[in-house]
């Protein structure tokens, strides 16, 4: 009977689908390990040391936080180009709240997170209500945020007071577990990844996120207020961006209004390397974290091998090409057989 053969094809689909997803993550993890092993081999004395591993983790924090938010947005089928300069502007705002206005550190942090949510909400509104393509809406926000960061700070870095704002700086540089050399920033990234994981896998937000990315119109016709949820998702991404802003400014001890551009591409790269589909509907938090770590390992390893800074981006670009190409090759093969 036709039904029987349908069921067998279908059953294969299930197994293949589940397997492919696991394989995807396994591949990313394997890639990370291979790259790590390669650098360890190339530079056995300096690369695979405890302090260097911590430094790799440390430098993955900011890209990781930005990438977490970007993952949620990219799963809707959108894109957020404003995470880099949005982070810069949020950092300037954090410094403005705490240094210039003298707000208590906790309140300053809260205001910064809310400000990040606001930036995301503006993006979400432009996308969901005005119907602008996400690329355009967030490109505009990227430019606006870049400009505003310079305007608000008058293009001068704002420094935190190492004594008065020590608790702020402690967020990134402090050690929750003393004398391990393990910075709080990494703890923050782990916690943020946990939150993102729960959001994506256990909550309505995650379910609607994936559903919108799979088929926005069908989701809307199913009775979901997709506009509202799109706005919420961009806002949540904004909160992750603001968290990234807090971590980078706490690490540097200052808000640097002229930096930040370029981070958005690294964040998107981390998301893509982690196996999230740019066409939406599919993505994982674990993959994104692995993606961020891969970028961090490459940057760190090339530095240790005294590869000039300019070459790091060349290598990173090639890694993205290879990773995405392999992924597409695999899904194409799965589709044709």
């Amino acid at each position: 009977m036709s039904t029987d053969s349908n069921v067998t094809t279908a059953a294969k689909g299930v197994r293949r689908g589940g397997l492919r997803e696991k394989l995807q993550q396994l591949m990313a993890l394997l890639g990370l390990l291979i790259i790590f092993a390669a650098f360890s081999f190339a530079s056995p004395t300096y690369f695979p040391t405890y302090s260097n591993v911590i430094s790799i983790l440390y430098s993955a924090v900011v890209i990781g936080l930005l990438a977490l938010g970007a993952t949620l947005v990219i799963i809707t089928g959108g894109i957020d180009l404003s995470v880099g300069t949005g982070m810069t502007l949020s950092a300037v705002m954090a410094a403005t709240f705490i240094v210039t206005w003298g707000l208590p550190v906790w309140l300053g942090i809260l205001c910064t997170l809310l400000f990040g949510a606001f930036l995301g909400l503006v993006n979400g509104t432009n996308v969901a209500i005005l119907g602008l393509p996400p690329f355009i809406a967030t490109l505009a926000m990227m430019l606006v945020a870049q400009g505003l960061a310079l305007v608000i700070s008058k293009a001068i870095p704002i420094y935190f007071d190492p004594v008065a704002h020590s608790s702020y700086l402690w967020l990134s540089n402090g050690e929750l577990i003393p004398s391990t050399g393990f910075p709080n920033a990494v703890v923050v990234l782990v916690l943020a990844a946990l939150v993102a994981f729960v959001l994506l896998n256990k909550t309505l937000l995650g379910r609607y996120d994936i559903s919108i990315g799979s088929n926005e119109e069908a989701t809307a016709l199913s009775g979901i207020n997709t506009k509202k949820w799109t706005m919420i998702i961009y806002s949540v991404a904004g909160v992750f961006t603001a968290l990234g802003a807090i971590m980078i400014s706490a690490r540097l001890g200052s808000a640097q209004p002229a930096t930040g551009a370029g981070y958005e591409l690294q964040a998107i790269a981390a998301v893509v390397i982690g196996g999230t589909s740019l066409s939406g509907g599919k993505g994982t938090i674990v993959g994104t974290i692995i993606g961020a770590l891969i970028i961090s390992v490459i940057n760190n390893g090339l530095q240790i091998m005294s590869m000039p800074q300019q070459w790091q981006n060349v290598i990173l670009g090639l890694v993205i090409l290879v990773v995405v190409f392999i992924d597409q090759l695999r899904s194409k093969r799965a589709a044709t057989t």
Binding site: R207, S211, S214, N215, E217
Partner: peptide
């Protein structure tokens, strides 16, 4: 085009409207 979330499980497609 307008009914299904094709890459998602049957269960999601059934539950989507009653999710909340």
């Amino acid at each position: 085009r307008l009914g299904l979330m094709l890459p998602l499980p049957v269960s999601h497609n059934i539950a989507i409207s009653s999710m909340s």
